[in-house]
Simulated assay, not measured.
Amino acid sequence: MKGLILCAGKGSRLRPLTFSSPKHLLPLMNKPVLFYGIESLIQAGITEIAVVVSPVYRKIFDEELQAGKPWNIDISLIDQPQPRGLADAIRVAKHFIQHDDFLLYLGDNVIDGPLQPLIDKFQAENLDGLVSVSHVDSPEQFGVVQLEGEKIKRVVEKPKHPPSNLAINGVYLFRHSLFDAIAKITPSPRGEYELTDAIQQLIDDKYQLGVYRSPYWWKDTGHPNDLIICNQYLLKKMTGIDINGLIDINSNISSPVSIGKNAQIINSVIRGPVIIGQNTVIENSYIGPFSSISDNVSIYNCEIENSIVMENTVLDSIPYRVDESLIGREVKVIGQPKKPQCIQLWIGDKSHLNFPR
Rank of each mutant, 00 (worst) to 15 (best):
S40V: 04
P215D: 07
V156G: 00
I259A: 03
I270E: 08
L209Q: 01
E305T: 04
T280I: 07
S325G: 06
L65S: 08
I253L: 11
V136F: 01
L147P: 05
S255Y: 02
Q208D: 13
I90W: 05
Q278D: 14
L103N: 00
P163A: 05
E157T: 13
R357E: 13
N165T: 12
L326I: 14
E39I: 13
E303W: 09
I185V: 04
D242W: 03
Q201Y: 04
G9F: 03
Q141F: 10
P256L: 03
Y300Q: 08
A198L: 07
D101F: 00
N72M: 13
I182W: 08
S164E: 07
G143T: 15
P187M: 07
I111S: 01
D349E: 14
G45M: 07
A87V: 06
I249Q: 09
K160A: 13
S351M: 12
L41A: 08
D316N: 13
R15H: 03
N252K: 13
L106N: 04
V136H: 00
I266L: 12
P340R: 12
L345E: 14
Q208M: 00
K121N: 05
I259S: 08
S177P: 02
S325P: 11
P55I: 00
D108H: 11
I327K: 10
P289K: 15
L26W: 06
E140M: 07
R357Q: 11
L25D: 09
F290M: 08
I182C: 04
I265T: 05
V171G: 00
L345S: 12
P117R: 12
L353I: 15
G11C: 10
R329G: 00
V52D: 04
P139A: 11
L147G: 02
I243F: 08
L115G: 01
L106I: 15
D323R: 14
Y320I: 05
I299F: 01
I185E: 06
N169T: 11
I229T: 14
N165H: 14
T18R: 05
I42T: 04
